[in-house]
Nucleic acid binder design. Structure first.
Lengths: 258, 258
DNA sequence: CTTGTTAAG
DNA sequence: CTTAACAAG
């Protein structure tokens, strides 16, 4: 029943003015996970005012540091419960994790650091991965965590994999972490429904002609566990949402769950 | 003989793309003083490349702090000498003063701080004023200092003078400093040629409808001394240069010297 | 190449 | 309201 989409909006205030609102008005999704709102609760509500007026419910995890991170969940019906962050992690209030309970499913919106190989920001990414991994592995039941994981799992998940073997987002330790999540019972829903071929990519750099050349990365996943994973169908990356005018460097990843 | 213009370009890189280059290609001025290039020597040369290719000569005083200040002099013929800064001032390398000798005249391009009443930035402005005033008062001969002085001299030099009696740019101490320069032998050339009426303003805030309402300030002056002052004619503020598309919040102030 | 923050204007 | 630097992406 739930029709769930996830998209890194790369600044909700900028995205709202460029096409996010139109996309929200047109989508058939019931639940939309967003990442990188880069705004306070108040600013997000202001940017999405037309959507909220049209009935969308907003749950949001505000980032501590201004202009960074920030994740939210938009839903046609209000969730029965919302939880910001996970555990007593150093990232509890980082605006990187939010989960919401709906009648038939619990949905989380996650934003993993992009990282930068060999820097403190990569160490921070690893710490986040460790804590998030422990939290997710301990969870049971029907559950889907959708968001920007900033990790391409396999060679089929990025166009130029040979050139990125030492790049943040495709490092062995990062890829192994996705393996662990799958081993813990999570299913990469889009890959399950697209077992063959490369992609579909969900992020294209703004630099050069990356989008036109489809030189992208698949770093936005739905990781579902329990009964939910088997119910997934029609997983699509809405690349076309970016054709007219790009309103983010990511495209929505949308899955229908029966 | 010299036809001299001054304009605060408010970022030469932004201005070049929006109309400064077209204005330079069309102006009849022989010497153009510019302020707030907000760029290094190299960046200014790159931004003005088409103008330099067309024959304009560039002299530039690079700001110490990136993205701030920076003054230059563009001339159809190369100056015989160029001097950056004045004396051993704390502002010697601030990118706020540059003078160049031409066959028949010495021209300086100056950029006085905008200031902020009651803050350290206002104190800095006062220190700059004191040092510049001492330097200019000691000078003799034919000489013109053109630039952004960031001070409206009298009630006729800004639209809303009543509301700005306590604002930086119209403070008693600032206005008195202009009086001192005039007493030292400098002539406010535009005012001399426009003895009646308000303005002509040379700066309009980007906020609100300031430009459309001509709610501006006259803060860009040619201060000339010696024979030169008497030779001035046809002093105009080229407000029309901003009609199509504004490429700065200031307009060029152009004077023909016989 | 883009977003948002910041300082300066 | 705008410029440019910066940090992050």
């Amino acid at each position: 029943m739930p029709y769930i989409s996830t998209v890194n909006v790369n600044g909700v205030r900028a995205a709202a003015g460029k096409g996010l609102l139109a996309w929200l008005a047109a989508t058939e999704a019931d639940i939309v996970c967003v990442q990188e709102t880069r705004a306070t609760d108040e600013q997000v509500a202001a940017a999405l005012a037309p959507a909220l007026d049209a009935g969308w419910q907003l749950s949001h995890a505000e980032p501590e540091s201004k202009g960074r991170a920030g994740v939210g969940i938009l839903s046609r019906r209000a969730p029965s419960a919302v939880r910001v962050g996970f555990g007593s992690s150093e990232f509890a209030a980082a605006g990187r994790y939010l989960e919401a309970d709906f009648d038939d499913v619990t949905v989380a919106s996650v934003y993993v650091h992009s990282g930068d190989a060999g820097t403190v920001r990569q160490d921070e990414k690893y710490r986040f991965m460790a804590e998030l991994g422990a939290y997710l592995s301990a969870r049971t039941g029907d559950f889907v965590v959708a968001g920007d994981w900033n990790i391409a799992h396999t060679e089929r998940d990025l166009k130029n994999w040979k050139g990125n073997l030492k790049s943040a987002g495709f490092l062995p330790q990062e890829r192994a972490w996705i393996d662990e999540l799958l081993a813990a019972g999570y299913v990469d829903v889009v890959r399950q429904l697209h077992p063959e071929g490369d992609g579909p990519y969900s992020w294209w750099s703004y630099r050069g002609r990356a989008f036109d050349n489809d030189s992208g990365w698949r770093i936005d996943y739905h990781l579902a566990r329990g009964d939910l994973a088997a119910r997934a169908k029609d997983a699509v990356v809405e690349r076309a949402a970016s054709y007219d005018q790009r309103w983010s460097d990511h495209a929505p990843v949308t899955v229908q769950y029966r």
